[in-house]
Write a protein that binds this DNA or RNA. Structure first.
Lengths: 112, 112
DNA sequence: GACGAGTATTACCATTTGATTATATAAACG
DNA sequence: CGTTTATATAATCAAATGGTAATACTCGTC
């Protein structure tokens, strides 16, 4: 499952949000997700792991999970292509780069 | 369907990528998605519409679709909480935007 | 080595998703 | 009007997803 799909799930975003505050054991993460069973959290963690969004470190029987936020850079990079459309406060540099990357288009309608 | 799920689908991202280059009629969008039938594209467009990511304008029998990238700001806002973890290797524009949207390390707490 | 704590995996089920074919709707055009 | 063009919707289906309960695995402790 790719990073986009991994992050699309609200419970998984909640897990990432928790891990953004620091490392957590699997059990602690279960405690922070009310209404989700331990196996459910374990499966979500597996998805996040396979997407490269978290990494695990064993600590006796515990599994300590840590965020690997750089995997989110893929989403950020994709978003970057759209960012100029909504950041109203474009300064000169941004506007220049935006124009450089994407010259205005004249939309040739009427074919076919 | 929320914006995260809407964007999680590769075909829908392809549609947005196409619309980022300018307005397109539904038929033109079908042509850019090889291997996807017209109804399939129409349904994806509906999802994008309901997520607020595109808007439609009628032109005779045609439906002209346009990007509404500001709906992506929700994803950007969420990403912002993580951006400080990898912002070391951003290029100039991205780094600038990251700083503009989210001053690193000095954010007043208050996230949900 | 048996036991308990902590976590992952399996088996299974309900729901959702994405695709397809066929059909409906709507507008231009003869 | 009837037809063609352009797009949306309905009906249906296979596959994927997310959840639970039960079970297996792993490690420290006794």
């Amino acid at each position: 499952m790719d990073v986009f799909e991994a992050v699309a799930e609200p419970s998984r975003r909640a897990l990432l949000d928790e891990l953004a505050q620091g490392e957590r054991s699997a059990g602690e993460l279960v405690a922070t997700l009310p209404g989700l069973s331990q196996p459910a959290v374990s499966r979500h963690l597996r998805v996040l792991r396979e997407a490269g969004l978290v990494e695990v470190r064993p600590d006796a029987q515990r599994r300590i999970y840590a965020l690997r936020a750089d995997a989110l850079a893929e989403i950020d990079a994709w978003l970057g292509r759209y960012r100029r459309y909504w950041s109203g406060h474009l300064d000169a540099l941004e506007a220049h780069l935006a124009r450089t990357h994407q010259p205005p288009r004249s939309t040739p309608e009427g074919d076919s």
